[in-house]
């Protein structure tokens, strides 16, 4: 394997400066190092880029024309990013809150999941505001279910209707007795 090319003069990061300090005072440092013993190969073609990581040539920055969240585990926005579906409404506020926490926290992920569910309700409201009534039959691909699993579809529809009727009847009788 090619010897790693590390040029200390190019290194400016604190981590690399510490890592690059002389190890002369450590007995046996590196004596058993074996570059062939690399379990990441061939997934990773180790060429020393990790050690020159501060100085890599960065592409130009994409213009930021909308609110883009950023993981707190990185220093800034990446050079490119997606512009799909900017955050908005209550779900946007929840996402904003979630991105205050690192990817190692449940607060981050669980809040995002909650935001996703809130966003579904917002989507229905947005549809209605725009004069579109969501066609659940079509959106859920039930025409394919009707085509390929008609018996199952009918069975599910009957079970669904029975359960709904039972729930409504239960509530109605409770209200009467109450």
């Amino acid at each position: 394997m090619e010897k790693l090319k590390t040029e200390p003069s190019k290194i400016s990061g604190i981590d690399r400066k510490i890592a690059d300090r002389s190890k002369d005072h450590i007995p046996g440092w590196g004596i058993d190092a074996d570059p062939e013993n690399d379990p990441t190969y061939p997934m990773k073609h180790r060429n020393g880029a990790d050690y020159e990581r501060i100085n890599y040539e960065k592409p130009p920055q994409q213009r930021i024309k909308m609110e883009v969240f950023r993981s707190v585990e990185r220093p800034g926005i990446t050079r490119v990013f997606g512009t799909s579906t900017p955050p908005k409404g209550l779900s946007g506020s929840l996402r904003r809150y979630a991105y205050k926490y690192s990817e190692a926290t449940s607060a981050h992920w669980m809040t995002l999941i909650l935001a996703d569910r809130v966003n579904v309700a917002e989507g229905i409201i947005d549809d209605l505001k725009a004069g579109t009534i969501p066609n659940f039959f079509e959106e859920r691909g039930w025409s394919a279910e009707w085509k390929y699993n008609r018996q199952g579809f009918i069975r599910s529809a009957i079970v669904g209707a029975l359960v709904t009727t039972a729930v409504i009847a239960c509530f109605a009788s409770r209200r009467k007795s109450g």
Binding site: A49, K58, P59, V68, T78, F81
Partner: peptide
């Protein structure tokens, strides 16, 4: 640069 193209550092801010 190390061919970990699924782990790019400049394409996902989130």
């Amino acid at each position: 640069k190390q061919e970990l193209y699924g782990n790019c550092h400049e394409s996902n801010p989130e």
